[in-house]
Design a protein around this nucleic acid. Sequence first.
DNA 1: CCCGTAAGGTTTGCATGCAAAATGCCGCAA
DNA 2: TTGCGGCATTTTGCATGCAAACCTTACGGG
Lengths: 211, 211
Amino acid sequence: MLHDEVVNALRTALIDGRIKPGERVPEKAFCVALGISRTPLREALKVLAAEGHVVLLPNRGARAARLTRRDLDELFEVNGALEALAGELAGRRITEAGIAAIEVLHRDMAAAFERRDLEGYYRGNRAIHEAILAAAGNQTLEALYESVGARIRRARFVAPMPPGHWEIAMLEHDAMLNALRRRDGVVLSSILKTHLKHKRDEIERAGFAEE
Amino acid sequence: MLHDEVVNALRTALIDGRIKPGERVPEKAFCVALGISRTPLREALKVLAAEGHVVLLPNRGARAARLTRRDLDELFEVNGALEALAGELAGRRITEAGIAAIEVLHRDMAAAFERRDLEGYYRGNRAIHEAILAAAGNQTLEALYESVGARIRRARFVAPMPPGHWEIAMLEHDAMLNALRRRDGVVLSSILKTHLKHKRDEIERAGFAEE
DNA sequence: CCCGTAAGGTTTGCATGCAAAATGCCGCAA
DNA sequence: TTGCGGCATTTTGCATGCAAACCTTACGGG
């Protein structure tokens, strides 16, 4: 399946910044880079445009989408609503096995926290959030969350976490796990909202790479 | 802009049921029907696949996506979360002009209700919901809502509204308008949730065209 | 010197062509 | 009659070709 691979390759390149916001995506150059012809590349660009990762200017090709502060605000608002819904649903639907799996992820993340491994912490953090989304038992929601998350991840942040915030985030995660154990979707939902709000404040303080 | 028009033409055909769920979408036939070549059609199909309106089977072409009851449940859950967020945001952000505009739509819809014009009522209903979404001042949210709504609209329902339900829906709309006037996003949000839940129950009772 | 403009090259948008995969059809045998 | 295998046709996936739109650059007029 050549076509899917092209979409994934480009999307990954866009998300982790190998193609920078605002940068042009000339067809020919990427064709030779990927060793394909223009047809599948163009199809991939159309899909990525529908996903919001690139913008297509008629007769002027594709550019990696610029992420304004406003876009980021909007994405965080939507992300919050999706995560809140996921929390609520997960509270109702998560299985014992699901809770156990998240407990494992939680311990891994806590271990990363203990050894001040920020990279590992972020990975674990994301894994837990995705596990909660999966536990919500709604694939449409999961796909949308993934899509919104991917757009957010395109924003690169410049400042490190201020002291104390990491600890707070960990405490919030402890609270999440407790709520999950009690299957309390309402509380889980509100913790997730708070958690995201803090992340949002973080970015507000840090400023992000664009602008 | 040929490409966009093809996407829109196909999407419309899918949403209002001219292309039925599960039906194949052979490239050649649609090329001659639309008077274009296969390239732009294929690009359009990829986009529609990304939007969830068609599914692409490798080497076996495109089919109009089937909407299972489960898909519908999932879409309603997501729709509810998006609408609830919109209600909350609209309460904070709507302008006087925005409220006035919705009051006009509301009166139109009420008039359709009075003359038992179900078609007109549905149109007005949808216009109000979209106006609330617009008033939320979040274009990302608006686009997602539109996308989810489009997928829901592909489900065709078979039974008419039971007596009394229409009246209840109207009362809920009155309550929405009141909440908006008071800029009470929390209440608006919860009314929207209830309203959608009733719509959902409706469909549960009616059964939908698939299956 | 600066601005407008026109020619050249480049890039995009769509059409077409070709090979591989899939579908359907027919005959054959159990 | 029913099930199976092989061939022809259709359909899909990608590459390529061609015309139109765009960008660059260089030239001439003001």
